[in-house]
Design a protein around this nucleic acid. Structure first.
Length: 590
RNA sequence: GGAGCCGUGGUGCAAUUGGUUAGCACGCCAGCCUGUCACGCUGGAAGUUGCGGGUUCGAGCCCCGUCGGCUCCGCCA
């Protein structure tokens, strides 16, 4: 098809272009047919421009304009004119002008789309995903992917300026134990053998350090076959970083510089550096999570001490069993009705609490259905400890520590939202440090790595490896932004003996270690430099920068929560011939 | 693996205690309309109530199963 190519985009023309003869290519966004005059909004990714068809001006073009429907692709040629006084549209950048059509050509027709191509659509995500190409025509989705692109470019520029090399690593890699479930790729050439898609390029970037590429980064797809969430997809993108001859401070420095750059160039915000550091212990005990949202206070207060000798049976027995009592002070909520308090209780139960005890502070008095079980003194102490004043509502949960923290941590987030404590325009970054190195896995009856098996313990804790492994802190760190974990990393072990010791602790035999990641251990025999790094969840970062609630809105072709792609219907069955070639037989389950 | 919410013309929603011909808006189609921009006005078409089974004189509504979407727990070094 021969067609007139555009001279300008649909977001480009201004008053200064008045008088020019231009050609625009784009999609018909909306037609307003006034009978004797037809207006068309022509759309492309740069914006919208109003086209005017008038029978007096050009009868032929006017006749074609009558045929135009939503999402037809057209080429229009005409003169840029100033809109009549009072007919300007100040809500769009091209609103001062319109293009008076001399000529219009339909480049392709469209069926009526299943939903309107506009920002504030009211349509199920299911339909959006099925017709993703239409969903992606919406300006907001285009803006999201444009922001994503810009952020990727800033990342590349930043690391290049700082002497990092972007090096691609393989996607068909060796399956390694530990961590997430692998996506497997069967080998045609080697019957019964499989590649894995990388959960992250972890081992390979460490080997690049051994190879002497002392500053590496990569924007890279990673694959994990685990259940999905709003912020988790089976394939996702990391900004992967590794550096040699460094300590934590060097990693923090380079990351803080990157974040400052991104915030400045994308959001126009100067964020203060260095970022505050919070220990894992402090995060859990104060916010009930290792990824606290620091935009609001509502801290967890531990009041176990006050109730050590209480008459109140539930509290006393919990404490005797090693449990704790913690609470939140809901400022100004003393006027909560019975119904509202019941809702709080339900919320707590949803998060696994046995119940919820509450105290209202009014006129200096502490009021509660269970007040009679407590001494005046202990209630006074409670009020002081929780910094409660008239009008406040204190809620308490008692259970084993882990449970209390997770219940109150979840409630804190929910209540922060409900009580409007969160400023959506604010961005609070923090490092979470001093993670435990190991965690006891009750099911498998062994220690497992909190981060990964190559994470270095803190030097001063190494002797605890033999006596009290659970107490050993790792040289690991997470970067947290508004309650999201956006990056995590560590200083690695580069000492073969220490690495072997960790493997032994994890119950990985020498032979197993050799079999599973012997190539890394082998590489480490030849002068591994001290090294460490970090990896960002790029999708999450873009999600936060664009203000989206799900990473699906910043990924071109995401999967549903059951890991299906509704547009192309992957995964699908394959031709038996393909299976044959791959030496694979499907076991039918009943 | 578990829990919650949801599934009704193309789309988003409504439908009283289980009871008449399943209603509204947007979109779509036709006609009218020369400065609209969510154009307006008039008229019209459009439904296997996700699917399968059950209870009932009667099911969009109740029960069981199943499929799909979203959120959360487990899981995600």
């Amino acid at each position: 098809m021969i067609f007139k190519k555009r001279t300008h985009t649909c977001g480009e023309l201004r008053a200064s272009d008045i008088g020019k003869i231009v050609t625009l290519n784009g999609w018909v966004d909306r037609r307003r047919d006034l009978g004797g005059l037809i207006f068309i909004d022509l759309r492309d990714r740069y914006g919208k421009t109003q086209i005017v068809f008038s029978p007096q001006h050009n009868y032929e073009a006017f006749q074609i304009a009558k045929e135009l429907k939503s999402e037809y692709v057209i080429s229009v040629t005409g003169k840029v004119e100033r809109r009549p006084k009072g007919a300007e549209n100040p809500s769009i950048p091209t609103g001062e002008i319109d293009v008076l059509a001399d000529e219009v050509q339909i480049l392709s027709k469209s069926e009526t789309p299943p939903f309107l191509i506009e920002d504030d659509i009211n349509v199920s995500e299911e339909l959006r995903l099925k017709y993703r190409y239409l969903d992606l025509r919406r300006p907001i989705m285009q803006a999201n992917l444009i922001t994503r692109h810009k952020m990727a470019q800033i990342v590349r520029r930043y690391f290049d300026e700082n002497n990092f090399l972007e090096i691609e690593t393989s996607f068909l890699v060796k399956s390694t134990p530990e961590g997430a479930r692998d996506f497997l790729v069967p080998s045609r050439i080697h019957p019964g053998k499989f590649y894995a898609l990388p959960q992250s390029p972890q081992l390979y970037k460490q080997i690049l350090m051994v190879a002497g590429f002392d500053r590496y980064f990569q924007i890279v797809k990673c694959f994990r076959d685990e259940d999905l969430r709003a912020d988790r997809q089976p394939e996702f993108t990391q900004i992967d970083i590794e550096m040699s001859f460094v300590t934590e401070e060097d990693v923090f420095n380079i990351v803080e510089g990157l974040m400052a750059r991104l915030f400045k160039e994308i959001k126009g915000i100067e964020i203060p550096t260095p970022f505050p550091r919070i220990t894992y212990k402090e995060a859990i005990e104060t916010y009930g999570t290792d990824k606290p949202d620091l935009r609001f206070d509502l801290k967890i207060v531990n009041v176990t001490e006050i109730f050590k000798t209480t008459e109140f049976k539930i509290f006393r027995e919990t404490i005797e069993k090693g449990g704790i009592i913690c609470g939140l002070n809901l400022k100004g909520c003393a006027n909560y009705s019975r119904k509202q308090i019941d809702e709080l209780t339900t919320l707590a139960k949803n998060y696994g609490a046995g119940g919820l005890v509450h105290f209202k502070v009014e006129n200096g008095e502490i009021d509660s259905p269970v007040a009679k079980y407590f001494s005046k003194l202990s209630l006074q102490k409670l009020k002081e400890k929780m910094d409660a004043n008239d009008g406040d509502l204190m809620i308490l949960v008692s259970d084993e520590p882990q449970k209390v923290y997770s219940i109150l941590g979840n409630m804190r987030i929910e209540l922060g939202r409900k009580l409007n404590l969160i400023d959506e325009d604010e961005f609070k970054l923090a490092w979470i440090v001093d993670f435990p190195l190991l965690e006891w896995d009750g099911e498998e009856n062994r220690w497992v790595s909190v981060h990964h098996p190559f994470t270095s313990p803190k030097l001063e804790d190494i002797q605890l490896l033999d006596t009290d492994p659970g107490k050993v802190r790792a040289r690991a760190y997470d970067l947290v932004l508004n309650g999201n974990e956006i990056a995590g990393g560590s200083i690695r072990i580069h000492d073969a003996q220490l690495q072997e010791k960790i493997f032994r602790l994890l119950g990985i035999s020498d032979e197993e270690a050799r079999k599973k990641f012997g190539f890394l251990l082998e590489a480490f025999k030849y002068g591994p430099p001290p090294h460490g790094g970090i990896a960002f969840g790029f999708d999450r970062l873009v999600m936060i920068f664009t203000g989206m609630k799900s990473i699906r809105d910043v990924i071109a072709f995401p999967k549903t929560s059951s890991a299906i792609s509704l547009m192309d219907e992957a995964p699908s069955e394959v031709d038996p011939k393909q299976l044959e070639e791959l030496h694979i037989q499907i076991k039918r389950e009943d």
